[in-house]
Amino acid sequence: MGAYIAKRVMLSFATLLAVLFILFMLMDLMPGSPFNDEKQTPEQIARSIALYGLDKPWPARFGRYALNMLTGNFGVSYVISKNIPVTDLLKTRFAVSARIGLQAVALGASLGVLLGVASAIRHNTLLDRACALVSVIGISIPSYVFALTLSYAAGFKLGWFPLLYQPKQAIASSVLPTVALSLGPMASLARFSRAEMLDAMDSDYIQLAKSKGVHGPRLIASHMLRNAMIPIVTVLAPLVVGLMTGSLVIEKIFSVPGIGSLLITAIQSNDYNVAITLSFIYCAMYIGFMLIVDILYGVIDPRIRLVKEAGFHD
């Protein structure tokens, strides 16, 4: 297990560095220089360049850049709020996005797996068909169409929850965005875990378990579900990507002051530094999540955890 985790951590770190390198190249390629719109004498500019180490060869600059990014020193915003450190811009927004995102993951994952497992066990019943319909719709309908419907119906017509995000009612106003965001992951998880459950139910080891007298909840929990969870865990990571994408739209629709709406603003106003910082943060979060999933995978699947060290052969 130790070697396995070490390998995954190394790979994650390598990916992070690769991402940083791409971002660094982009910053280097971007038209204009950070100092061009300020009225400075050539000497001043030269001094600034020396100060920020821009005259050094690129490996040194990259090292410095990577160190800055990894330590949370993201530089300043150029357009959105001039010369305000990006970190300050992020502070409150990150918490809002993270809360909605985590709520959506928790809701979508638990409900999705539950639905999938239930419809696999009650295969070909009304419940199964209903679940199938819900998941096809959930997968096919873009999250923002669902979000729009939700905001129109539950926010505008019925007025159950705030139509737009109110910082004062953080909990109540996070309900609609969370529900809207969780539909996609829920639908695809329901579908996937149903298929995996059915697969597990047809497997030889379930036949053996049945033939030795295992039945009921025990058969489902310790034989079917445990094995079905292995592939289910692997699709969690792609779902998080979908969530990130979805969060942009959701935050726009419900005007949530999160990092998603900040990214849209940054892209539209060409605020490179903010956009690139946010890209880095999204990458880091995603890579971190993939690492967690990989470790979880190892915990569930002994074939990953235990390499064939102790072999029993004929």
């Binding site: 790979l11 490179y272 956009a275 946010l278």
Partner: peptide, 18 residues
């Protein structure tokens, strides 16, 4: 694997920036 470690959203962002 490395490319897969970059969320779609980031690729989109960077492309649009360029």
């Amino acid at each position: 694997e490395v490319v897969n470690g970059i969320p779609t959203l980031v690729i989109v962002t960077l492309l649009i920036l360029v």
